[in-house]
Design a protein around this nucleic acid. Sequence first.
DNA 1: TACGCGTGGAT
DNA 2: TATCCAAGCGT
Length: 364
Amino acid sequence: MSWIPSPELLAPLAPWFDRVRRDLPWRAADLDAPHPDPYAVLVSELMLQQTQVATVTPYFNRWMEQFPTPQHLAEAGEDAVHKAWEGLGYYRRARFLKAAAGTVAAEGWPTDLDGLTGLPGLGPYTAAAVGSIAFQWPTPALDGNAFRVLARLLLIEGDPKDQAVRFRTWLEPALAAHGPSRMTQALMELGATICLPSPVCATCPLSERCGAHLTGRTGDIPPVAKRPKPKASTLWLYALEAEGHVLLHPPAAKGLLAGLWRWPALEAAEPSLQALVPAPGAVRAWPGWTQVYTHRREAVNPLHLSLDARFTPAPGLRWVPRAELAALPLGKRDQRLRDLLETPGQVPMEAPDPAALIRACSAV
DNA sequence: TACGCGTGGAT
DNA sequence: TATCCAAGCGT
């Protein structure tokens, strides 16, 4: 099966994009020149991985003010970097970005696609996106949008990701003909605004040439992927406070919420199983909530336990002055308990035995 | 290869 | 409410 050459088939995409493109803070005004700030492209692409434009925009603006160059970012502290990323999710992207900035600061920008792919956090998509958008290399970038657009346009049966090599080979002449930065962004913009999972073909510049549209197949191309059900768990999340300090896990190197400070937590198969009536007055509680991650659902039950004196914490835990708590990077779950500490709570109907919480956090 | 990794918006 | 899934990557 041969495809119509991409410069011809995709020709309407260029004028369409020049007409409708959104004005985004990382986007260059002149799409025919190399980008004036490749670092801005790098930052935006890392932030945009699995994250929507509207979510990224305020983070990007703050980030560029705080870390305006690769040098600034490379020299920043880990906590400051994670604090600037706080709430954006997938936090290792922040560490990858800092590491990549260090390489760029020390060695300059890579001069080819393999060089970009060698930077931490840049896979096939992101390296090609930076290459085309920042440097005008004819390197086709295939994200979820591009795969969906191409699957429909070219009437691809099955998982379009299997066609990545063919797609890239086919796309390259179109990038060369109509401008790498323009075509890369146009393909994604079409997928993000028109060729959505439920597409709006009436306003699509390619509808007259789209295999799926012409055959009424946009509903089943590309096929929907099945996802595993998230695992459910229930936990107590607790703030132990004593002598003006609170007990926290310092950032871990890997795993869920790596790079962030975390409240200690106690797993509970059923909230009521380990529940005992606590000592009145010492414990506060608030209504729980369900914390959703990609692969997990946590039923979170927040507690605050005030103690008279600090104890020697177990390895992996640290007493932190409460005044410093606001400056530490926390995930959404732990931010929520941090915020609750400033609000009135209730004496809980049931909670783990305070002695059990202290034992779980004490050095042996 | 399949899985782990966050959060929020859209339907 | 439940589900999908968004400018993916590393292991």
